[in-house]
Write a protein that binds this DNA or RNA. Structure first.
Length: 278
DNA sequence: TGGGACACGGAGCGGAAGCA
DNA sequence: TGCTTCCGCTCCGTGTCCCA
């Protein structure tokens, strides 16, 4: 007789909360990292406000969403980055089916291509913009992929681009000293190198080293089908880019556009060609 | 056929904004 | 400052659909 996995009830409860088209639509909308009112989410999901209100109550009660009351408005947002990661990962798994569906009209076509160019994934960059930034950081030895099988990637390769050290949460080793990766680093998919930490510092981007969230982690991109940078570093980079005007949001959706200032900055700091951003 | 889940509309409440 | 209007949210009752 086998004993049931103790995680089963919690997994079933969480899956049940997400397993509704209206609630899924709300969760996907909330991936932009902003707080929405019930009315906005109702219009977005195409249901009555009362229906949306009921669904949002369940998600808040289930710990998936966090709410904040301000006057007569009730704002809801994703409870934390782990929820965002879960929704984005699930969305990435079903993206192939979504891509097959033909866009309905010019508006949906242009909106979809803008999302594919660049968007926010909760609090970090995704789409071609997210991939371009991740590739540039990796090419410069500022970021290392860490998710390869242990047999091949468990020990640092001694290549010409090998960085001085690794860091997901402040870890580092002397330059050139191969070391085994921790299970946490392998699990997160990316690790910032010491040079990467210095790059963020020199770019004026503050990293919250006290956060329990991984400093760098991989998030599967549903349009590019490749991992992009998430975690504390991904969020800080995105926040900084929006704050200083490297990027601007397009309308009320998650799509973002790189400004001419952003093109210059990303070219100077990371050597990213403007064509890679559009 | 009954129960559960979901959706909707109407009524009521309360806060924000506008105006005298 | 107080009144009115508008708007958003919630509660409640009801209808529909699906499944055992």
């Amino acid at each position: 007789m086998t004993s049931r996995d103790p995680r089963a009830p919690e997994l079933a409860r969480l899956a049940g909360l997400i397993a509704d088209e209206t609630r899924a639509a709300c969760l996907l909308a909330l991936l932009d990292g902003r707080a929405w009112t019930a009315g906005e989410l109702a219009r977005h999901a195409g249901v009555a406000a009362s229906t949306a209100s009921e669904h949002l109550h369940r998600l808040v009660a289930g710990g998936v969403l966090a709410e904040e009351r301000q006057g007569r408005h009730r704002y809801v947002r994703l409870a934390d980055a782990r929820v965002a990661q879960l929704v984005e990962d699930l969305a990435a798994q079903v993206a192939p089916g979504a891509v097959v569906r033909r866009p309905r009209g010019l508006r949906e076509t242009s909106s979809g291509s803008a999302m594919a160019r660049g968007r926010t994934c909760y609090d970090h960059f995704a789409g071609r913009l997210g991939i371009a930034v991740t590739d540039a950081l990796t090419a410069r030895g500022l970021l290392l992929p860490t998710s390869e099988p242990e047999g091949r990637a468990g020990v640092e390769r001694s290549t010409a681009r090998r960085p001085e050290g690794l860091s997901t949460g402040g870890l580092s080793t002397p330059a050139g000293a191969p070391r085994r990766r921790t299970s946490e680093e392998r699990a997160t998919g990316f690790a910032l190198t010491d040079a990467g930490l210095r790059w963020f510092d020199s770019a004026g981007i503050t990293l919250d080293r006290t956060s329990r969230r991984p400093l760098a982690r991989a998030c599967l991109d549903w349009t590019e089908r490749r991992p992009h940078l998430a975690g504390v570093a991904g969020a800080a980079l995105c926040r900084h880019a929006l704050d200083v005007g490297w990027c601007v949001r397009i309308g009320s959706a998650r799509a973002v556009k790189v400004t001419p200032e952003g093109e210059r900055a990303l070219s100077e700091l990371l050597g990213i060609e403007a064509e890679a951003l559009h």
